[in-house]
Simulated scan of single mutants.
Amino acid sequence: MLPRSPLLTRRAFGSVSALSAAAVLAPALVRAQADEAALGRVTIAVGGQGVLYHLPLVLADQLGYFRAEGLDVTIRDLPAGALALQAVQDGTADVCAGAFEHTLRQQARGQAFRSFVVLGRAPQLALGVSLRAVPAYKDLGDLQGRRIGVSSVGSSTHMAASLVLGRAGLGPREVNFVSVGSGVGAMNALRSGQVHALCHADPLMTLLEQKADTRIVADMRSLKSAQEAFGGAMPAGCLYAPQAFLQKQPAQAQALANGIVHALKWLQTAAPADLAKAVPTGYLMGDRGLYLAAFNRVRETYSPNGAMPEEGPATALRVLPRAHAELADLKADLARTYTNDFVRKARQKFTL
């Protein structure tokens, strides 16, 4: 009779299990590290990372989706989208997270920028009038001669406010646009009377509305309201980059698109509690319930798959001259302002 094998102790079993797991995971870990070394570091400039407009970017970073694609991503958070674009032009960032219409304006200036993954299908913006500064407000005409806060002159908030006011008969010289940045700075500008009205994104506008600081007079935070305001599907937040970057670093661009598409897929089924845990606490603005309420308001506007809306570029091209008189003769080769090539591959990977 053969002797009975001694029983394996818990400690020994744990050691064996750990070694077995290491043997299985080691090749994957090596491959991941090799991929990361191969793809390297990418810097993304963004104007106001904490606003819901940029939520897919925040999630792709916070949930580790960029890292899983082998990228070491650094995000530079700046007060406004126009400043984020400037960072890319200055060479301090590789890619910009911002409004699609910037690619049209830059093409008109002889600079080739191209969107390669879309975050949102509507700008998620609202124009609110200060209840303290303009207590007798009746209509948009009451804003003549007033100071209108925008994240920065040249940003999407400036474009949206100009469009809304222009439709009410107020030209750019009949109001004063003031750059107030984003987040707390923009909120304080309205509350202190530095500006009489503010065009901005959520959760800030929901906070100001619920705290009775502002009255929303133009709302572009749903697909329907945005389509009415812009006359069609208006692409909003996206990742865009110089054409040279997309040509020289296609693997990095693909990894970025994969990370965003992965985040968009996560958003489709995410529970409110999951979202609150995923974003940095500071982005909740001290009120978790308010943040989630603002998210639910704009949730439908996020891209379902990262692809450019079919009529989106044409809508943006129509809108810009209406918002900015100096762009009256704006012409663009729309096919050179975006590409869905990276998104197609990402959608195959994540079955979207």
Rank of each mutant, 00 (worst) to 15 (best):
L7G: 13
L8A: 09
G14S: 13
S17A: 15
S20G: 15
V30Q: 09
A32N: 09
V46W: 06
G47C: 12
G47L: 12
Q49R: 15
G50V: 06
V51L: 08
L55A: 08
L57Q: 07
L59N: 09
Q62A: 14
G64P: 09
R67I: 06
R67H: 14
V73E: 04
T74E: 14
A80G: 05
A93Y: 08
A97Q: 10
F100E: 10
E101Y: 15
H102E: 12
A108D: 14
V118P: 01
L119S: 07
G120N: 14
G120E: 13
P123I: 00
R132D: 12
R132E: 14
V134S: 08
V134E: 12
G141R: 03
D142Y: 01
D142S: 03
Q144H: 09
G149V: 07
V153R: 11
M159A: 08
M159S: 06
A161N: 05
S162M: 08
R167M: 01
R167K: 15
A168C: 01
G169W: 00
G171N: 02
G171P: 02
V178F: 02
S179Y: 09
V184K: 15
V184G: 05
M187A: 12
L190K: 03
L190A: 02
R191Y: 02
A197M: 12
A197Q: 05
H200P: 00
H200S: 11
A201P: 06
A201V: 07
A201G: 02
P203C: 02
L204A: 02
T206S: 12
L207G: 00
L208C: 06
K211A: 09
D213P: 00
I216R: 04
V217I: 07
A218R: 01
M220A: 13
M220W: 15
L223R: 05
K224A: 13
A229C: 09
F230W: 08
F230T: 11
G232A: 11
A233P: 01
M234K: 04
M234R: 06
P235N: 11
K248G: 08
A251V: 03
Q252P: 12
Q254G: 09
G259Y: 10
I260R: 05
V261M: 06
L264T: 08
P272W: 06
D274P: 01
K277W: 00
T281F: 12
L284R: 10
M285N: 10
R288N: 11
Y291G: 02
F295G: 00
R297G: 03
R297Q: 14
V298I: 14
R299E: 07
E300S: 15
P309A: 13
L317C: 10
P321M: 05
P321T: 07
H324M: 11
A325R: 06
L327Q: 13
D333F: 06
D333Y: 07
V343N: 04
A346T: 03
A346W: 03
K349F: 04
F350Y: 15
L352Y: 08
